[in-house]
């Protein structure tokens, strides 16, 4: 589903500015399908964040409701900047704005790939710039029981740090699963671009039985650092999703995800 939403988002981007004749699927009301995560106001603007689940280390799809003091839904332009404040240093994380920066009817969507949890080390905030107004929304990011973000340092240059977010399967099932990952690079503390030119081989593996599964499709780059493939699980139990990531024909890292189903 998430990948479909992503594809839909891309179509949405393509439709921006031109008359889009395709019937848009009705967007869910904020409250019906999503859970409210947090809310903040500076008196003039109120921002409420919604998501499927509490923010976690990994790929989060976020919907923001933007209202004025009278509770009217706003339209206009928005930008969100993430910040992890660790006192001695600060850094951001990969962000995506699949529908661009324009929003209508108070609804603004973006994706945040949090790279560490909130805690003693520091705290996350999302700073919204809405129609010239700026509002920081503190958020809490938890470490999920099963890691949904893996990072590695390139074995080629020994310095570049890559972050791989497992987007799908979010709820893995026995059988065929759509597999989607997002790959990002930490260019600077504040610049986390998508990496689009990787070759990724993928093998699901059952360590306790030492076998894999047949007919998987290696993830292939689609757009904006998102790679789409297919992964098959032949039975329940503990699996690993083993990735071999190459850049310009050279292996740079072999991150893996533990999966339990």
């Amino acid at each position: 589903m998430k990948s479909l939403r992503w594809a839909y988002a891309l179509v949405g981007v393509a439709c921006l500015g031109v008359s889009c004749t395709e019937q848009e699927a009705p967007k869910p009301l904020f409250e019906t399908e999503l859970s409210e995560i947090t809310s903040a106001t500076d008196g003039a603007t109120t921002i409420t964040l919604y998501a499927d689940e509490p923010f976690f280390v990994g790929f989060n799809q976020v919907t923001a409701k933007i209202e004025n003091a009278n509770g009217e839904l706003l339209s206009g332009e928005a930008l969100v900047t993430p910040l992890m404040d660790m006192m001695t240093m600060r850094h951001a994380c990969p962000m995506e704005f699949p529908n661009g920066f324009q929003f209508v009817d108070g609804r603004f969507e973006f994706n945040a790939v949090f790279v560490m949890p909130s805690g003693d080390m520091g705290n996350w905030s999302l700073t919204f710039a809405v129609n010239g107004d700026t509002l920081a929304v503190p958020v809490t990011v938890v470490q999920p029981a099963r890691a949904r973000l893996a990072s590695f340092v390139s074995t080629q240059d020994q310095t570049s740090k890559y972050f791989v977010a497992l987007i799908d399967p979010g709820a893995p099932q026995v059988g065929e699963n759509v597999m989607e990952i997002g790959v990002f690079k930490k260019q600077t503390m504040m610049d986390w671009p998508a990496v689009e030119d990787l070759t990724i081989a993928m093998q699901p593996w059952m360590p306790s039985m030492d076998h894999g599964s047949p007919n998987n499709v290696d993830p292939v780059h689609q757009a904006a650092g998102h790679y789409l493939g297919k992964v098959n699980f032949t039975m329940t139990g503990e699996w690993q999703l083993r990735l071999s990531i190459s850049e310009s024909g050279l292996l740079i890292g072999e991150p893996l995800f533990d999966i339990i189903l």
Binding site: V174, M206, S208, M209, T234, M235, T236, G237, E238, I260, L261
Partner: peptide, 16 residues
Amino acid sequence: EMTMYANEPGGAPMYM
């Protein structure tokens, strides 16, 4: 059906 039990304690059973 088949359920296999991992040798490591606490491992999730494998079912098909």
